[in-house]
Amino acid sequence: MKTKFHIKDLDLFFKEEKVLKQINFEIPANKILGIIGPSGSGKTTFLRALNRMNDLEDGTRIEGNILLDEEDIYKPDYDVVALRKKVGMVFAMPVPLPMSIYENVVYGVRLSGVNDSKLLDELVEKSLTASYLWDEVKDRLKTSGMRLSGGQQQRLCLARVLAMEPEVILLDEPCSGLDPISTAKIEDALTVLKKDYTIILVTNNTKQAARVADNTAFFLMGELIEIGSTGQIFTTPNRIETNDYITGRFG
């Protein structure tokens, strides 16, 4: 089994505060990793460390290493733009850019200099199909992405990431604001997508992790408490905190 990310002794500081403490584990390729934990546990911060989105916040500093395909993504002169093209991200709140559905999907690709309209057309259809949105929007690709419903917007955001043909997809509580039907569509899309992508899904909803993740990691107070196959974590957790969290004692 191929390792996609290798996290070694990762500490992350925000100003003086240590937000992540001594994280060590490997993320296998072509699997869905679910990350669960109460809010404030550092799971979103961890996710944003994987495509260096934390760089945008003033006062963030890391120690330790994160290797992507055995290459340290925090080494000096590492190409951050290339990293983000390889590691796509879907945010908690769906944020369509204020442009048409079509332009939203091809935004990242156009930035890389692709302008061949036939190629772009194909890409739009392929990406929207993979995110289960094509049938709903194929007749109105030129209308603004902001006119879609919340669930549709989030699938548009997923399509936008797929169009980049990344290797990894990070999802930060992508269904937190969505209705059950949209949530189901996104979960269906993810289970299909994992054969081509490595997927890391941060979620507040333990049931969602149980439904779609192959492996599950449990974060608490900036520490990785436990990681294992989803079946093991949800049936025979090794740690008492994990058990308390998944059975709803706190969080």
């Binding site: 983000r84 945010f91 930035l111 990431v161």
Partner: peptide, 13 residues
């Protein structure tokens, strides 16, 4: 701010 995040996350400079 979210527009900036999205744009950067899609590999924009």
């Amino acid at each position: 701010k979210s527009y900036r995040e999205v744009s950067f996350s899609l590999g924009a400079t």
